[in-house]
Amino acid sequence: MLEQVTRFNESGKRHIIEVFHVYKNYGPRPTLFDINLTVLENEFLFIAGPSGAGKTTFLRLLFRDEQVTQGHILVKGINLQRIPRRKIPLLRRDIGVVFQDFRLIDHYTVYENIALVLEAAGHQARYIPKRVHQVLRMVGLEKTLHAYPARLSGGEQQRIAVARAAVGKPLILLADEPTGNLDADASDMVFDLFAQLHKLGTTIIVATHDKLLLSKVRARIVSLDQGHMEIKNHL
């Protein structure tokens, strides 16, 4: 049985992600240590922390790329410990991910990389090209449609990764250091896109070690350091 309980806060907002006493060990020493966090629907959240703090590891737990060693994570009220294997793809369609290392398929064109998400989800053939053009325009890269990722600059690849994460109109967008390779203009463009998605109701979680970025965007910030999470402003 899937434990599917949806909780709401006082103002009636849904708890879209709930993390209870989560530990993650790769070796004997925990990478994540007793993490507790609740993310509300349509929240904009930063996870800030230095390199090696465990940000990527934490995000990977959220879309079930990794499993917790101890504790529980609920996404949309679904316990990720108990989710059957065949349901994982459905979970992932609700979560768009901008990977720190982009994870683009290098022998697919930009178009094919992005369209893949929609094909896998079984969208109608008519809709796919329209939507792919749309997200590419949003990241300012509609000219690169037929290019291969390796031919693009690091910043361009990063924006393609953002476009791919957004293309499926996910409920939750996880962005792991999404502006690491970007100059100020490109970075602004990516955050404009995030803001647009946020306005449409998407929950956005951005992991970064860029302190400057934190001051630029209005969002709740939790910090992660050596596997410990510190929540300054509670809900």
Binding site: P89, F99, R103, L116, V117, A120
Partner: peptide
Amino acid sequence: RDELDIMRLVGATDSF
């Protein structure tokens, strides 16, 4: 394998 891993990460089912 890279390509197949990425497919799984973006929500492709095993049968796809």
